[in-house]
Simulated assay, not measured.
Amino acid sequence: MKTVQQKWVVIVAMAFMLCLAGLVISGTAFGAGGGQCEDNGDGTVTDNGSGLMWQKATAGEMEWHQAMSYASGLSLGGHSGWRLPTKDELKGLYNSECKKLMDVRSSYYWSSTTDAYYASSAWLVNFSLGYVGHGSKSNSNYVRAVRAGQ
């Protein structure tokens, strides 16, 4: 009976080591963000998990149309192609370790996603509570631009 228990201990230990080796190789073991988030030192943060590059600083409060224009006209870190994030991208950032590398306000941020039922409203994510809701496009909220990273 003792040899059966010993075999199971060896199998479990080997499985654990293989899993740990896989995490180390993939860069997701240990540390905040596990290497997924990278401060590029040029005002941008790359989320290697999502493949997105984020503006590190929070842009001021502005109406939605101004926010869309601001993001699309942004040139940052030697990159163009910036835009306002979708509702899902912004919610993903809220849940990401990458936000720890950014200037984040405990308030609402605009997404580019227009409310399907109210064309005069767009979706917002609250970076204090993670709440996702919609607000009038004429209201002022914070802005953070995003682009496809590379």
Rank of each mutant, 00 (worst) to 15 (best):
G49L: 11
C19Q: 05
G27S: 03
G31A: 13
E89T: 06
L90H: 04
A21C: 10
A32H: 06
E63I: 05
A67E: 11
L52G: 03
K87C: 06
D47I: 11
Q66D: 15
D39I: 03
E61G: 10
L93G: 02
W82G: 13
F30C: 04
H79F: 15
E38Y: 07
C37R: 02
M62P: 01
W54T: 07
L23P: 03
M14I: 13
P85Q: 01
F30V: 09
W64P: 10
A13F: 02
S50E: 06
G77A: 02
L76K: 06
M17R: 03
V4Y: 08
E89K: 05
L23S: 12
G51P: 07
N48W: 00
S75T: 02
G33Y: 07
D88S: 12
L93I: 11
A67P: 12
G60C: 11
A57S: 14
S96D: 00
E61Q: 14
W82R: 07
A59E: 10
G35Y: 00
A13Y: 01
G77Q: 01
K56Y: 05
S72Q: 15
Y94D: 00
E38S: 10
G22L: 03
F16G: 10
V10Y: 01
H65R: 14
G27K: 04
T58M: 08
M53R: 08
A15Q: 03
Q66P: 09
L23F: 13
G81P: 00
G41N: 12
N95S: 11
A67C: 14
S80D: 14
G78N: 03
S26P: 00
K87P: 02
V9D: 10
M68R: 14
A67T: 13
D42S: 05
G34Q: 09
Q36M: 08
S26C: 04
G33V: 01
A29N: 02
A59L: 12
S26Q: 05
Q66N: 14
I25D: 04
K87Q: 14
G33F: 08
N40E: 14
G43A: 02
A32L: 12
V12E: 03
V12T: 10
Q66L: 13
D42H: 08
E63L: 07
V12M: 05
L93C: 02
G51Q: 04
